[in-house]
């Protein structure tokens, strides 16, 4: 018999470690043609960290994104980022990029002051140009500043690189009066609702519909946010229903060797209907309100599916994954106990 159930789960996902320190650095270099090279150590594994950091650099330097180059292979020589993990990049690295952009703008004003015959404080940077305040005709484009800094032309050559570093303010002991203990840089909030069908004869659990909504501060790139929400579902589903190293774990000699032993969810294991949603409440700790959430999207589906299984068959399954064997044994035990 097929029994239906619905379950839900809420997730608080913290990012930006205040205890151990969670730093990232960045540099932005002005090239002779006026384009910019962004150097960040965060490695993009496909989640889009390089893309959003380019977006931030372009936005902060007020130039088209096509003018900002970033390499994903820079981690050998770029300023260090603690890494692209734990949903930390979106919260932390943009601060380093922001500081690097401010530093570069300052250096551009200083370098252009000789050429524009004005004090750096009287110069302003806007939309890829540096100009004398109140006299916008006396201006230089980024390409003119970049070219002059490389080849000379009225001033000594210079390498114009802005640098920036940032990490969340370090942890301090909790406030005994209020109990406040800001251990993390930001928290993202998610909700997941799962609908399942449990076949009581075979023990198979079919997730028929799954909805996840995440509050992400600011969706810097909505396409990438969507990928993270739906992508997190994959290990979430696998953890809950199929991915199993039992009984061998943790003995590495018996680790699963192929995808038949260790079953990843396929297209058919994905819910017939998958819905997703994004909420934005700008976070004060993030650049433009952005904060990380991605890893949390793996955490909602397991408890939501387990709650839905409970709703369907009246049993709390307390081991992952809920394979057909686990479900059938639980049903048998329930029957035996009357």
């Amino acid at each position: 018999m097929k029994k239906k159930g619905v379950g839900m789960a809420c997730v608080l996902h913290p990012t930006g470690n205040k205890g151990a320190g969670d730093p990232s650095n960045a540099a932005i270099q002005l090239k002779p043609d006026g384009t910019l090279v962004l150097l960040v150590g965060a490695v993009d594994l496909g989640q889009g960290s390089t893309t959003i950091l380019r977006q931030f650099a372009a936005d902060l330097m007020e130039v088209p994104i096509e003018h900002v180059f970033a390499s994903n292979f820079a981690d050998d020589f770029a300023p260090l980022s603690l890494g692209s993990f734990a949903s930390r990049v979106t919260l932390i690295d943009p601060h380093a990029v922001e500081n690097a952009a401010e530093d570069l703008k300052k250096k551009i004003r200083e370098y252009a002051s000789d050429l524009l015959e004005a004090h750096p404080d009287d110069l302003e940077y806007k939309e890829g140009k540096v100009f004398v305040k109140g006299a916008p005709d006396r201006s230089m484009t980024l390409a003119e500043v970049g070219g002059a800094s490389m080849f000379g032309g009225g001033a000594d050559p210079a390498l114009l690189v802005g640098t920036g570093a940032w990490q969340p303010a370090r942890f301090h002991p909790h406030d005994p009066e209020t109990g406040a203990m800001p251990a993390v840089g930001a928290i993202s909030f998610g909700a997941c609702v799962a609908e399942v069908e449990v076949d009581t004869e075979t023990g198979m659990v079919d997730v028929t519909k799954l909805t996840q909504v995440w509050e992400v501060g600011k969706a810097v790139n909505p396409l990438l946010v969507r990928q993270q929400i739906n992508g997190g579902l994959h290990p979430g589903l696998g953890t809950t229903l199929t991915e199993n190293s039992y009984p061998y774990y943790p003995n590495p000699d018996w680790a699963p060797e192929n995808f038949s032993d260790y079953a990843l969810p396929t297209f058919l294991d994905y819910p017939e209907e998958t819905l997703w949603g994004i909420e934005e409440v700008p976070h004060p700790a993030g650049v433009k309100g952005a904060k990380g959430f991605s890893e949390g999207s793996t955490n909602g589906p397991p408890p939501a599916i387990m709650a839905a299984i409970h709703d369907a068959i009246g049993i709390w399954i307390d081991e992952y994954p809920a394979t057909p064997e686990v479900i059938l044994r639980a049903l048998e035990a329930k029957e035996a106990s009357g």
């Binding site: 496909g46 990928q227 739906n230 994959h234 290990p235 969810p265 396929t266 297209f267 994905y270």
Partner: peptide, 23 residues
Amino acid sequence: SRTEIREYMSGNLCRCGSYEEII
């Protein structure tokens, strides 16, 4: 149909979980 896509593509695994976007 959506079901036919899911069935036909089910021999290709994606660890990043891009199934929904691929469909």
